[in-house]
Amino acid sequence: MDTAVERAIECIRERYGEPLTLTEIAESALLSRFYFARLFKEETGLTPGRFLAAIRIYHAKRLIETTSMSITEISYAVGYNSLGSFTNSFTASVGVSPSRYRRLARDGVGGLPGPEPGPWPGSGMVAGTISLPEGHGNARVFLGAFRTPIVQHPSVASIVVDVPSGRPSCYSLKDIPEGSWHLLAVAVADGIGPDRRARRTSLVGGTAR
């Protein structure tokens, strides 16, 4: 990846809670605003604004799941200047409102929105195997086909696969429309070490046709 884009991504990851502008992100990459926006999209497949929004929603989900902060407090903590804009962005990305997501997180992950209804004309199937990096124990993996290179509701097909430590598991995604899709996975795995109860999150990404 281009080093200027890497600098910009680091800036976004460190300052997502601030009211960042495109100009400020471009300055962190030492590039002009217009050239930076084009380069960032070429390198990541996303505009800087979409990438920043994805980072903010990711951190918002963690705060909703793990803290007692109010939804309003969380919205400001991750860089939004109004509860309304945060709620709209979160709901569009996750598929449920922040308050409903909190209720679902407390009760378990059941009830989250599924993929778009299908099948479509010319739909097909993607199949393969999932394996875990070294240093992880058993994992539950969410795998989906998405229109964008970020995990964002809705997927066109999705599945949850249990993957044991040390060997791959097979998967198949059915009724995927003809075209190009981003095949993305999120895994929550047991840590390996003195405290096996520790939880780690791994992100795996790719593109399927």
Rank of each mutant, 00 (worst) to 15 (best):
Val186Met: 12
Arg200Asp: 14
Asp190Lys: 02
Leu203Arg: 09
Arg200Phe: 13
Gly166Arg: 01
Ser169Ile: 02
Arg167His: 11
Ala189Gly: 07
Arg200Gln: 13
Gly191Met: 02
Arg197Tyr: 09
Val186Ala: 14
Val186Gly: 07
Asp195Lys: 02
Ser180Arg: 07
Ser165Ile: 03
Arg199Gln: 11
Lys174Gln: 14
Leu184Gln: 03
Ala198Val: 11
Asp190Asn: 09
Gly193Asn: 06
Ser202Thr: 12
Gly179Tyr: 02
Gly191Ser: 07
Glu178Gln: 14
Gly166Gln: 04
Glu178Ser: 14
Gly193Lys: 00
Ser202Phe: 15
Asp190Leu: 04
Cys170Tyr: 15
Ala198Asp: 11
Cys170Thr: 15
Leu173Tyr: 01
Arg197Ala: 10
Lys174Glu: 14
Ser172Arg: 08
Pro194Asn: 10
Ser169Trp: 06
Arg196Trp: 10
Ser169Lys: 01
Arg199Asp: 06
Tyr171Ala: 09
Asp190Gln: 06
Leu183Asp: 04
Trp181Tyr: 12
Leu183Gln: 05
Ala185Lys: 02
Arg197Cys: 11
Arg199Thr: 12
Ser202Pro: 12
Trp181Ala: 11
Arg200Ile: 13
Ser180Pro: 08
Leu173Arg: 00
Trp181Arg: 01
Ser202Lys: 08
Arg167Asp: 13
Val188Asp: 08
Gly166Asp: 02
Asp175Pro: 04
Ile192Ser: 08
Val186Tyr: 11
Ser169Tyr: 03
Ala185Phe: 03
Ile176Pro: 00
Ser180Asp: 09
Leu173Asp: 03
Arg167Asn: 12
Ser202Gln: 06
Leu184Ser: 08
Gly179Asp: 03
Arg196Asn: 10
Glu178Lys: 15
Pro194Glu: 08
Ser169Asn: 01
Ser172Phe: 10
Ser169Glu: 01
Trp181Phe: 13
Ala185Ile: 01
Val186Cys: 09
Arg200Asn: 13
Gly191Asp: 02
Arg200Ala: 13
Thr201Gly: 14
Val204Pro: 11
Leu183Lys: 02
Arg199Lys: 08
Pro168Ala: 08
Thr201Cys: 13
Cys170Pro: 12
Pro168Lys: 02
Gly179Pro: 05
Tyr171Lys: 06
Ser165Tyr: 09
Gly179Trp: 04
Pro168Tyr: 03
Leu183Arg: 01
Thr201Lys: 12
His182Arg: 08
Ser165Val: 09
Cys170Phe: 14
Pro168Arg: 05
Val186His: 09
Leu184Asn: 03
Glu178Ile: 10
Ser165Gln: 13
Arg196Leu: 10
Glu178Met: 13
Ala189Thr: 00
Arg197Lys: 12
Val188Lys: 03
Ile176Thr: 00
Ala187Trp: 01
Gly179Cys: 04
Ala189Glu: 01
Thr201Phe: 14
Ala187Leu: 00
Ile176Ala: 00
Arg199Ser: 10
Arg167Ser: 14
Ile176Tyr: 05
Asp190Gly: 08
